[in-house]
């Protein structure tokens, strides 16, 4: 309540048109696996609460990605697709060398601080 008046929260009407959603999905074109490289793995359901553990959550994402890579990489290799680039292959990276140097410097610094504490 809000002092004298009882506040009625407006509820959103529930819209979930399941048959329409399903027929909509069927109408969407599908591509071959080699075009999309999508992998679905069983969920390690993680609770999302107010005081959720960030670290645990990130571990879950990592595990999911790891599983997906473990499925997709051998499959690509049997299909004859090159996955890993040769060590002498140079091309533009997503992050610049300058940026990666900064990252490395920061990693070293945090490692040093850890060592000192020990």
């Amino acid at each position: 309540s809000d002092g004298l008046n009882i506040v009625h929260l407006k509820k959103r009407p529930i819209i979930n048109l399941v048959p329409e959603l399903k027929s909509r999905l069927e109408k969407m074109p599908t591509l071959s696996w080699l075009e999309t490289l999508d992998v679905t793995t069983t969920a390690t359901a993680f609770e999302e609460t107010e005081d959720a553990n960030d670290f645990e959550r990130e571990i879950n994402f990592y595990k999911q990605a790891e599983k997906a890579a473990a499925i997709a990489v051998p499959r690509l290799q049997t299909m004859g697709v090159r996955v890993f680039r040769p060590t002498d292959y140079y091309a533009e990276m997503a992050k610049s060398d300058e940026h990666m140097q900064k990252v490395r410097k920061r990693l070293l610094e945090t490692q040093e601080i850890k060592d000192r504490q020990e």
């Binding site: 490289l37 999508d38 069983t42 997906a68 533009e92 990252v103 990693l107």
Partner: peptide, 19 residues
């Protein structure tokens, strides 16, 4: 700076979904 990975610009990704 906390994300230490890097990949080729414009290489193809594997898409991972949970069930």
């Amino acid at each position: 700076l906390k994300m230490s990975g890097n990949c080729l610009k414009a290489s193809r990704p594997i898409l991972s979904f949970d069930s």
